[in-house]
Design a protein around this nucleic acid. Structure first.
Lengths: 121, 121
DNA sequence: ATTACATGCAACATTCAAGTTGCATGTTGC
DNA sequence: GCAACATGCAACTTGAATGTTGCATGTAAT
């Protein structure tokens, strides 16, 4: 890693790439079907593709593609169980995304407080 | 509000629409440029379109469209200030999204605990 | 008034994501 | 072996998202 193609131009441009890494996780969660899959998997444990397709109005192949998108960002993991393929939720990326949102919230609170302090001065 | 078009069909199908409502917020955050805009606005207060365009490699019009996408889910808000248009971060939808992720995390923890209790029994 | 700045609007091209269909492959059970 | 189930793979269509260019509009400053 650290290809270092950019000359680190400004002061705060080092912080943004970390956020952009989380953009992929948000993009994966930004689809109703995928969000439903994540919710189903984190509640019911490991499920097969056919089971996950049962509740939806879309094709099994479409569900497979959505699961692949979720797997690309590490939100789910697959394991062969005989003739079927069980998909399980993986909490780590979601935790990272949650912390990312918390950090944005914190920065916003700090900005508000700085503004208030300046007004009172 | 409360149009009540759906007859509340099943037991747990009432929970998923709430999640799907948050999918739009995640989709809005799921773009590197937009995530950068949100980060910039929550740190630096209200900024104009030209200011937000300065750091990027894309056009002013593209930034405008991204801001519109963020505004559609309520993440930013605009206000005219003379000849320019200041955009400000709005924390409410992000807080809702953060709580949504926390709930998913909580459900996962509960599922793990249930599984452990069953194994020990 | 006129010049410069900041933005709005609309048409356009291009890329990508979502979903489908059709068929092939592997696995279970009789 | 054979039928039924579960999945994999690939081509295709469609619609939306991203970004651009060109011009119009409104505002500020001289």
């Amino acid at each position: 890693m650290s290809s270092r193609t950019e000359p680190a131009p400004a002061t705060r441009s080092r912080r943004t790439p970390v956020l952009q890494q989380h953009a992929a996780v948000f993009a994966a969660l930004g689809d109703p079907t995928r969000l439903r899959l994540v919710a189903a998997l984190c509640t019911g444990g490991a499920l097969s593709i056919a089971q996950l397709t049962a509740g939806t109005a879309i094709t099994r192949q479409a569900v497979t593609r959505h699961l692949q998108v979720l797997a690309d960002v590490g939100l789910v993991q697959d394991a062969r169980m005989g003739r079927e393929r069980r998909w399980a939720f993986e909490p780590a990326p979601l935790e990272a995304a949650r912390r990312s949102l918390e950090q944005v919230s914190r920065q916003w609170d700090q900005a508000l407080e700085r503004l208030r302090a300046r007004v009172e001065a």
